[in-house]
Design a protein around this nucleic acid. Structure first.
Length: 329
RNA sequence: GGGCAAGUGGUCGAGUGGUUAAUGGCACCAGACUGUAAAUCUGGCCGUGAGAGCGUACGAUGGUUCGAAUCCAUCCUUGCCCA
């Protein structure tokens, strides 16, 4: 995607990743370029995730100690040690507007004992992040709440982090493969414990239903790879549900991805053509689907904001679920 | 007309007497995907059947053999070379 395309879609903020940018091209290069905004020509807000998710997703390539995490690079196997202080240095060099404190995202399921130790360590790391964070004026450092799927641990995590008075807080460690009921249970328990006057950020979500549930629970912001990943794999999210445009059934479907959508892809191209592009492995196919999916989610959240103002979000959710094809909560 | 080489499942291509309904790749058909090790991964892919199975199948026909995609003969087709 180009910044112009993201602007046209209505994106207000984008996310970059500390671990990946540290490995390639290296935060020193980004710093030399004048920071991420300059480097990639995006002048709106940027948030950098801290590498805590990679502690989870690259679990076979890392070792956790009290001091930090040693990663073996997924690119070349070289060893790299991430401490909270190191992560702050990298994130300051990258120069995002919102930066995340270094955490551990626990796998699902994890034992109570493991989750407790991990959560407490994440809190200690949050303290270290706060203490070593220098560029306070230009970068807002958010704390990440952990505690897995144990409510008392979630409560403890919120209380400990709130004492540190971060400018924003994130819910981490959910949407890691658990059943939806457990996701909702922890989301609805944790979010109301978080300060109302500061951004509440749910990390790694997601699907339209999860986003609506997040808003209902009191979440202000989310991030997710899903819209672009499923785009690359040939799927569109539409107001009438998922459309796997890669499938043969759309071979001769000369209608837009979503008849209710007015994004660039829907205004100009048909399902049959986009299917052809995807099947032919043409980059334009994945680009058009990405444009559409990002636009769809942007519009969905715009609608959610309107319904919140109208105090009508619950009704909207029901309507949306019915049309999208979700059968239950 | 003569010489040489080759014909395998949608396709390319392994396989040179028996664990062969036949390795792989591609194509095709589905599924998965939630703080990006992902333009990735998983499954299916001769017919029929829920299944064991049955029926067909390695250019064609005939043969050798307990057993043939694999060996032999003839024929057909294709490519290259010579006239």
């Amino acid at each position: 995607m180009t910044p112009e395309e993201l602007n046209d879609i209505g994106a207000q903020i984008i996310l970059s990743n500390t671990y990946h940018l540290y490995l390639r091209p290296g935060e020193n290069i980004v710093k030399e370029a004048g920071g991420l905004h300059e480097f990639m020509n995006w002048d709106k807000p940027i948030l950098t995730d801290c590498g805590g998710f990679q502690v989870f997703s690259l679990s076979e390539l890392r070792t956790i100690t009290e001091d930090g995490v040693e990663f073996r690079s997924h690119l070349d196997g070289s060893k790299h040690f991430f401490t909270p202080e190191k992560v702050m240095q990298i994130e300051e060099d990258l120069g995002a507007d919102i930066i995340m404190s270094f955490d551990e995202c626990c796998p699902y399921p994890s034992t109570y004992e493991y989750t407790k130790n991990s959560m407490e360590r994440t809190t200690r790391w949050a303290i270290r992040c706060k203490n070593s964070h220098k560029n306070i004026e230009k970068q807002a450092l958010f704390g990440i709440i952990q505690g897995g799927f144990y409510k008392d641990l979630r409560k403890q995590s919120v209380e400990d982090l709130v004492k540190l008075d971060f400018p924003g807080y994130a819910v981490g460690g959910i949407s890691v493969g658990e059943p939806k009921e457990e996701f909702l249970d922890i989301l609805r328990y944790t979010t109301p414990l978080m300060p109302e006057n500061k951004p509440r950020y749910l990390m790694g979500v997601g699907t339209p239903d999860y986003l609506i549930e997040a808003a209902l629970a009191g979440i202000d912001m989310c991030d997710c790879v899903l819209p672009t990943r499923i785009a690359r794999n040939g799927t569109a999210m539409t107001w009438r549900g998922k459309v796997v445009v890669r499938n043969a059934t759309y071979e001769r479907d000369f209608t837009p991805l979503d008849p209710e959508c007015d994004c660039y892809a829907c205004k100009n191209y048909t399902r049959a053509y986009i299917r052809h592009l995807i099947k032919a492995n043409e980059i334009l196919g994945t680009r058009l689907l990405s444009i559409h999916n990002l636009y769809f989610l942007t519009k969905l959240m715009e609608r959610v904001r309107i319904e919140i103002e109208n105090d009508n979000l619950l009704n909207f959710k029901e309507e949306f679920y019915k049309k999208y094809g979700y059968t239950k909560e």
